[in-house]
C-alpha cells in the first residue's frame, strides 16, 4: 500500500501516552507543544481521544471548526503566525456536548483519516495526544504511524501507586508493539500552598522517578500542580512563556528534543 504523503513534511513524531486517565496527557502535550513553539519550531498537535477530546479547550480553540480544502482537512491554527496547528474530533462536533458513542472499528477509521486526510504541511514536530488505555485508539495509531518511524512515546504519570500500576502496563504495551519510550514525566507532583508555601504532595511523591529507574526509562522531570494553568485559556502561545511552569517544561523539552533522534 502506498503511504499517503500528508506526513512527509513532518520531521519528528512524538506520542504522549499513559495507561491512566486524568494524569495530564493533554496538558503535557499542550505544554510541550507551547515550549517548542517558544523555540521557534512549527508544531502540530493531533488529538486522538475521540470520546473525550481535551486539546481544543486546552489551546483555547473551543468552538473552532475544521475547513475542507482541495488538499484535505485544514487543521485549526492556534496563533496568527501559523506555527501551531491542531486537529481534534472536538472541531467536528455540531454541539460540543455531543457524545461520540463509537465502537473500535469506527474509531480506528477516524484515526486513519486524521493522518491521511489532514494537510499537516511542513512541521518540525507532530505531537499525538492519546486516550488512556492500551486498546483500539492506541493500537491503531501505532500501527498507522509505523511507516513513519515515530521518534517515541512520552509517558505521563502521577505519583500515586494506583496510577503507576496502569503506567507500568503502558510500558509493557510500548515494548510489545515496538515503539521507543523517550521518557517519563511525573505530573501533579506536589502543590505549593499559596498561603504558607508548604509543599503538599496531593498524590504522594517520587513514584514516577522510582519507576523510571526500575524500568530503565529516562526520567524527563517532575511537574508541580499549578492551578493557574487550568485558568489560562486564551492566547496561550503568548501567555505560556510567562507561566511558572515554563521553566519546568524548558528542561523537559530539552530532553525530549535530545532524545528525539529520528533522522531528518
Amino acid at each position: 500500500m502506498q503511504q499517503p504523503p500528508q506526513l512527509d513534511g513532518v520531521k519528528h513524531i512524538i506520542l504522549v501516552m499513559s495507561g491512566k486517565g486524568g494524569v495530564g496527557k493533554s496538558s503535557v502535550a499542550t505544554q510541550l507543544a507551547l515550549s517548542l513553539i517558544a523555540r521557534n519550531k512549527t508544531v502540530g498537535v493531533l488529538d486522538i481521544d475521540l470520546c473525550g477530546p481535551s486539546i481544543p479547550r486546552m489551546l483555547g480553540l473551543d468552538g473552532k471548526g475544521v475547513h475542507q480544502s482541495s488538499a484535505g482537512w485544514v487543521p485549526v491554527y492556534a496563533d496568527e503566525n501559523k506555527k501551531l496547528c491542531c486537529m481534534s474530533i472536538g472541531f467536528m462536533l455540531e454541539n460540543k456536548d455531543d457524545s461520540v458513542v463509537w465502537r473500535g472499528p469506527k474509531k480506528t477509521a477516524m484515526i486513519r483519516q486524521f493522518l491521511t486526510d489532514t494537510c499537516w504541511g511542513e512541521l518540525d514536530y507532530l505531537i499525538v495526544d492519546t486516550p488512556p488505555g492500551t486498546s483500539d485508539e492506541n493500537i491503531s495509531i501505532v500501527e498507522h504511524l509505523k511507516a513513519y518511524n515515530p521518534d517515541g512515546v512520552v509517558l505521563v504519570t502521577t505519583p500515586q501507586a494506583v496510577a503507576l500500576a496502569d503506567v507500568r502496563k503502558q510500558v509493557s504495551f510500548c515494548r510489545q508493539v515496538g515503539v521507543p519510550i523517550l521518557g517519563l514525566v511525573e505530573n501533579m507532583s506536589g502543590f505549593i500552598c499559596p498561603h504558607c508555601a508548604e509543599c503538599n504532595n496531593l498524590f504522594s511523591a517520587g513514584g514516577g522517578e522510582a519507576m523510571s529507574e526500575e524500568f530503565a526509562i529516562n526520567f524527563l522531570g517532575r511537574v508541580p500542580i499549578d492551578p493557574t494553568l487550568t485558568a489560562m485559556d486564551t492566547d496561550l502561545v503568548k501567555q505560556f512563556p510567562t507561566s511558572s511552569l515554563f521553566p519546568v517544561f524548558e528542561k523537559i523539552t530539552d530532553k525530549v528534543e535530545e532524545y528525539a533522534t529520528r533522522s531528518q
Binding site: D97, F191, C193, P194, H195, C196, E198, N200, L202, I225, P227, T228, T230, A231, D233
Partner: peptide, 28 residues
C-alpha cells in the same frame, strides 16, 4: 478544593472557571 494541613488555608487545585459541577448540573 484543598485544605492545607499545615496552615488550614484553602486553595483550589482544579479551578472551577465555569462554575464547577453545580453549575453544570443546573445547565443539564
Amino acid at each position: 478544593g484543598f485544605v492545607c494541613p499545615s496552615c488550614k488555608g484553602e486553595s483550589v487545585i482544579f479551578a472551577p472557571t465555569t462554575g464547577g459541577a453545580r453549575k453544570m448540573c443546573e445547565d443539564t
